[in-house]
Amino acid sequence: MTEILRVENLAKSYGTFEAVKGISFTVREGEMKALIGPNGAGKSTCFNMLTGQIRPTRGEVFLDGARITGLPPRVIWRRGVGRTFQITGTYQSMTVIENVQMALISHNRRVFSLFGRARALYRTEALALLDRVGMADQAERPCSVLAYGDLKKLELAIALAHRPRLLLMDEPTAGMAPSARIALMQLTADIVTEEGLSVLFTEHDMDVVFAHAHHIMVLNRGELIADGNAAEVRANPQVQDVYLGGGMLFKEIDHA
């Protein structure tokens, strides 16, 4: 397996506070990799540096060997990186399908078309994507009335619209019921397998993490303290230390 994403010594400081302290890792093609850690560990900062929302203080990011450090989000997106956010940012004034169509319009570089009906463009493709995440029956509903879990699914559909090779998902199941979490991640895993894309995700729910991640990284206070498969991470004494209060989780997983 070749690596699709390589991160070298990536760091971000706010004044004297160093949110991310020079971390390095890789994501390989076709794998689902999780980035976990307690609140404030720097997971979202790290993600935002990868997709261009935040400019790193130092370090480099390579996509498929090409440097993408500090590029604006829209450029990184065009290079084939999809992204979902911890707090969803769908377009409230559009319908579900229009949200997906918007991504397709952008992908096909039709944003500056002044004529023609946007609603009529790429409907079939958009419907197929919605169908893929189980949202086809809600295609014409206004986005503003969707249930939270459905919004997350919609976000997934949007992120898949430009056929990315790497998908970054920030807390994809936050705020969802446990059963729905498993279902959503199962869906993601299926897509990963079928499309052959790679996923990097952050997650609080260890059930989800240990059920779906091929590899797990643990971030604590801006430092990467572990990077390996589930067993390796679980055995890591530093990780156990960090998750001392969360020992329960490990037990549950043991007999899961």
């Binding site: 929302q53 956010f85 039709r110 944003v111 078309s113 949007i158 430009h162």
Partner: peptide
């Protein structure tokens, strides 16, 4: 009603999301 108008509205609704989809 054209793609441009939709993109404009997208930027208004969520500039972050729009930027993250290449707009």
């Amino acid at each position: 009603h054209a793609p441009f108008g939709y993109a404009l509205r997208a930027g208004r609704d969520s500039a972050r999301q729009a930027e993250a989809m290449g707009i």
